[in-house]
């Protein structure tokens, strides 16, 4: 690699993307093989190949595939959202759960589900979830526009997160619902237990639209490395970019939490892990973060089923165990003046 190397050519290690895709595919197959009826990987692959016996086909395709697809999709949008929020806010601690977007979206979903709201048919749930996410994002963006301090934003995010979390508990306690305690856990910690294709149908359009909007402005995120003024003089239309990003976050995260609840830390851990394998420009982390999010959440969802507990572990438990050390590590670095 001499002087003729083009500076933006080697944006990441060549093996990073193929490795992540293979990992995601492998974990997805393992996820399909895991459950109350253990299936061999061979049987799963036969079913996926379109042959296989009826029993295995029903278990794999009808019962387990929705869960696996959701783990991949929700994980991908969480990872991507984390990478975009960190790039836009220029803060390595920003991500949907730390900044409260996930909880705010989940609050919208809870209100839709437990108060039997139905003003838009099947779209009511994701609509309210997206609205919740918007409500959680707007105060953060106002604060981000006003102060330079990264910690002020995190504090505001913690406040939004706590308030929305309390809102979820409150809403479930007031709802005519005998299982409030369990349900509160599900929405605050996230779960993909017993998901069906109905859930996939709710989430898929949101995840797709959200991902497209979020991946749109990679170049602008790079330019923001130089601050807003320099980015604008490089041709970045900041208001348009901000609008796309907010819409992408709200739709993507809203759609994800509507079916999975608020799953913490995926968007924090994944960009942090993949960034050293890239040139550290925000745009270089977007695709690996999406793939890495899919890998991490599928692995976590596998883990909650494999760990022998009386009641299935919540996803957020696993991701928090992985994510909190990363968070603390960054906070300590922050004190050294990141």
């Amino acid at each position: 690699m001499g002087k003729t190397m083009m500076p933006a050519a080697a944006v990441r290690r060549a093996w990073l993307i193929p490795t992540l895709i293979l990992l995601a595919a492998g974990l997805a197959v393992l996820s399909l093989a895991t459950g109350q009826v253990p299936l061999s990987v061979g049987r799963v692959l036969t079913v996926l190949g379109g042959r296989g016996d009826a029993v295995a086909a029903t278990i794999v395709l009808d019962l387990r595939l929705p869960r696996t697809l959701l783990a991949l999709g929700v994980g991908a949008i969480l990872g991507l959202s984390g990478a975009v929020m960190q790039g836009y806010l220029r803060n390595p601690l920003a991500e949907p759960s730390v900044l409260g977007t996930s909880n705010a979206g989940a609050l919208g979903a809870v209100i839709a589900l437990y108060y039997g709201l139905d003003f838009a048919g099947g779209a009511t749930l994701p609509l309210l979830s997206v609205a919740g996410a918007v409500a959680g994002l707007v105060p953060l963006m106002l604060i981000a526009g006003r102060t330079a301090g990264p910690l002020a934003l995190i504090l505001a995010g913690v406040a939004v997160s706590a308030l929305a979390g309390a809102g979820i508990s409150l809403a479930l306690n007031f709802a005519p619902n005998p299982f409030a305690a369990v349900e509160i856990m599900t929405w605050l910690m996230g779960s993909l237990e017993d998901r069906s294709f109905r859930h996939v149908a709710i989430a898929a359009p949101c995840l797709f639209v959200g991902a497209v909007l979020l991946a749109w402005d990679g170049r602008a995120l790079d330019a923001l490395s130089l601050g807003e003024d320099a980015a604008r003089t490089l041709g970045v239309d900041l208001p348009a970019m901000r609008a796309r990003m907010l819409a992408g976050l709200a739709i993507g995260i809203g759609g994800a939490v509507a079916v999975s609840g608020a799953i913490g830390f995926v968007g924090l851990i994944v960009p942090h892990l993949v960034r050293p394998l890239t040139d550290r420009a925000p745009s270089s982390a977007l695709l690996p973060s999406a793939l890495g999010g899919a890998v991490l959440l599928t692995a976590a969802d596998l883990l909650v089923r494999v760990v022998p507990t009386e009641q299935e572990l919540r996803l957020g438990v696993v991701t928090a165990v992985l994510g909190v050390p990363v968070f603390l590590h960054h906070l300590l670095k922050e004190r050294r003046g990141w």
């Binding site: 130089l226 601050g227 320099a230 550290r280």
Partner: peptide, 23 residues
């Protein structure tokens, strides 16, 4: 335009940083 204050938010390599000027 080069703003004052040496704003640089991510630990980019020098070549990558200068390449931003081509955006």
């Amino acid at each position: 335009y080069l703003p004052q204050g040496q704003i640089l938010e991510w630990p980019l390599s020098v070549a990558r940083l200068v390449a931003l000027g081509r955006l």
